[in-house]
Simulated scan of single mutants.
Amino acid sequence: MQDNQKLRDRLLSDVARMTTDGSANTPPSKSKTFSMAFRDLVRGWNQHELWLQLGWQDIKQRYRRSTLGPLWITIATGVMALALGLLYSMLFQISVREFLPHVTVGFIVWGFISGCIKDGADIFIENEGLIKQLPSALSVHVYRLVWRQLLFLAHNMVIWLLLVVVFQIPLTWNTLLAVPALALLVVNSVWVTMLFGIIATRFRDVAPLLEAMVQLLFYVTPIVWTTQTLREQGGEVAERARIAELNPLYHYLEIVRGPLIGVDVPLYHWGIVGAVTVVGLLVALAVMRQWRFRVPYWV
């Protein structure tokens, strides 16, 4: 009850501040600018106390009366990665020491990516009450979701620490590249959540479509298989390995997974991720500029 009262007081203070600066009463005609779309992202970020507390509250409510709490996600991820890692290492005849970290870290990163995409499609629909009653920055709900997924990711990183100990994965200066890679992943999760959230709020068929697409992308992304295995077979199979390069999620996965398992990441992966990030942000801002103020009417 005390936590709910604090959240209510925080929301009311934010609304009062928006009313004072006039941002809550901006006419739709003046909202259709890139500056207003960017301002929404900034205002949402400045309300960090709000979305940090809301995201943490989501975790507490989801695992209330559970003994292990969010560790259930860690256990499920670890068991799935172990089972598939052992199975496919035998099928592909790859050493478990080499293949299991590849699969496990891939699962951890994929959990964050897929969570942002699938949950992002319903983010505004699920927060209908807050959006209609308390007109805070739209990006607050996006940051809340990304923060929640980051908490899940942090729990799953315990599995990576176990891999480091068991398989003696070397921790070098190259491992620190995972930090900017994760930062890029977070930035992309913000625009992806905002983009799909607005579109799926207007067109309700988008959410199940995204869920099916994410499932498909899981199989065409090198998580339980490697591009190196395909290249070693030579011939047409090796040529088909290049198709994986067309999947942008492959590059996001590589820049995070490589440093964590002690594998050097070619520079072109970073270039592709950087280019997609810039284009994605511009597309998301354009969608926000055009339809951001309509979301309260669509939910």
Results as ranks from 00 to 15, higher is better:
121 A>N: 00
227 T>L: 06
177 L>R: 13
66 S>Q: 12
59 I>M: 15
182 L>M: 06
14 D>V: 13
169 I>Q: 07
235 G>I: 03
132 K>W: 10
175 T>G: 04
5 Q>G: 11
275 A>F: 07
82 L>F: 08
44 G>E: 03
229 T>Q: 06
226 T>Y: 01
242 R>F: 11
5 Q>R: 15
139 S>A: 10
253 L>H: 02
84 L>A: 06
73 I>F: 10
211 E>T: 07
58 D>T: 15
7 L>E: 14
268 Y>K: 08
12 L>H: 15
3 D>T: 13
76 A>L: 14
13 S>Y: 13
30 K>V: 10
155 H>K: 07
227 T>S: 10
44 G>S: 12
108 I>Y: 01
173 W>G: 15
253 L>T: 00
183 A>S: 11
276 V>Y: 13
40 D>R: 02
192 V>G: 03
40 D>I: 08
178 A>P: 04
48 H>G: 13
163 L>H: 03
89 S>Q: 04
100 L>C: 03
88 Y>E: 01
245 E>M: 10
35 S>T: 14
192 V>T: 02
260 L>E: 02
158 V>S: 10
234 G>K: 04
75 I>R: 08
109 V>K: 00
121 A>D: 02
191 W>E: 03
270 W>G: 05
194 M>Q: 00
255 I>Y: 02
156 N>L: 08
87 L>I: 04
71 L>E: 01
291 W>G: 01
224 V>D: 02
166 V>L: 12
171 L>W: 03
150 L>F: 14
93 Q>A: 00
178 A>R: 01
200 A>N: 03
216 L>P: 01
42 V>A: 11
35 S>D: 11
16 A>C: 09
58 D>H: 15
204 R>N: 07
169 I>W: 09
186 V>M: 05
296 P>V: 06
198 I>L: 01
15 V>I: 12
50 L>N: 04
9 D>M: 09
251 H>A: 06
261 I>M: 03
6 K>L: 11
218 F>W: 09
38 F>W: 13
131 I>D: 11
204 R>A: 05
43 R>S: 11
154 A>N: 07
157 M>Q: 10
157 M>R: 03
197 G>S: 02
23 S>T: 14
290 Q>K: 13
260 L>I: 01
